[in-house]
Design a protein around this nucleic acid. Sequence first.
DNA 1: CCTCGTTATGTCAGCGACTGTCATCACTGG
DNA 2: CCAGTGATGACAGTCGCTGACATAACGAGG
Lengths: 176, 176
Amino acid sequence: MQSALDLFVEHGYDQTTVADIAARAGLTERTFFRHFADKREVLFHGGQLLEDGIVEALAGVPPEVAPLAAVATAVSAVAPFFDGRKERSRMRQRVIDSHPELQEREVSKMARLSLVLAAGLRARDVGDTAARLAADAGVAVFRAAFVLWLAGEGEDMGALIGECFDELVKVVEAGR
Amino acid sequence: MQSALDLFVEHGYDQTTVADIAARAGLTERTFFRHFADKREVLFHGGQLLEDGIVEALAGVPPEVAPLAAVATAVSAVAPFFDGRKERSRMRQRVIDSHPELQEREVSKMARLSLVLAAGLRARDVGDTAARLAADAGVAVFRAAFVLWLAGEGEDMGALIGECFDELVKVVEAGR
DNA sequence: CCTCGTTATGTCAGCGACTGTCATCACTGG
DNA sequence: CCAGTGATGACAGTCGCTGACATAACGAGG
């Protein structure tokens, strides 16, 4: 993963072949594909931890909490995960922003997060459509907060998530 | 596009090569790639019309309308686009659901829709984060309505969008 | 200390997606 | 009728990705 990120930053994503990445890591191309499903995945492998953390946190929220509030709580729970990782996140994001193929994978990961969140909500007896909407809303809040976090200086991800959540509530009530 | 959909339904997405598609259409593989950026795109080319319609509708909404309401109006405007296309949409959706690569492209198209919606809102002097959130919320409503439309019988897409919008408002207010 | 099963890695051959390049050919405006 | 433009074909090549088989590392049990 480190070799890949280095090469992507240095020479660009599509100037870097999988063979290059493997060689820098002292491995063969075949071995690369045993660890990562495809070339893109090497940049997204870590995101699994995030998803797991959020899902676990959602499971721990008391059942009487309203769906969207539960999702917001779960998303906030992984905020510490971002501490001290801003520089690395920015490098990674620059690479992603430079290539549509990678942006596609990124939104795909967010969609997956939405899916598992919705599943978690249904397990709490939330209706199907409500679960879908609350999950999507939660992901939207997370994404908006992440953008602000990357752009800003040293701000705490947890606080930003809270702010974006409030903003969402305002936007929805105004558009009601 | 027709040749591709037929072959995908008949033999499956990855059992179908681009050469197969091109041959059935009476063309060469090279020509296929002059019309579609990649193999997936042949299933999504039509979606551009939808996006254009929504963006255009958003531009036509009076500026004093609140962001989320404007987005909801714009999304509703393309509801007639779906009339009489349910069977074809279901075939296409079955193919997409059968292959992760295609699902990735689909969410990517939704993300793109969200982006252009947010851009349209910013042109209406909506703040950056509010625009992002309202756009994402609008796309979430659209997706939820589309799922209901595909699953149900003969229901009007416009009505479903309205219902999902109401549901979103309820979910957000309950989770406030 | 020596197997033996398990797991990570290497090697090789091959398919199919995708691209660059050049030639051909239909069509269109003058 | 000619020149220019755009769509297509032909061909070679790169690279992402996979299957199959062989080999090396490594930990458990005798």
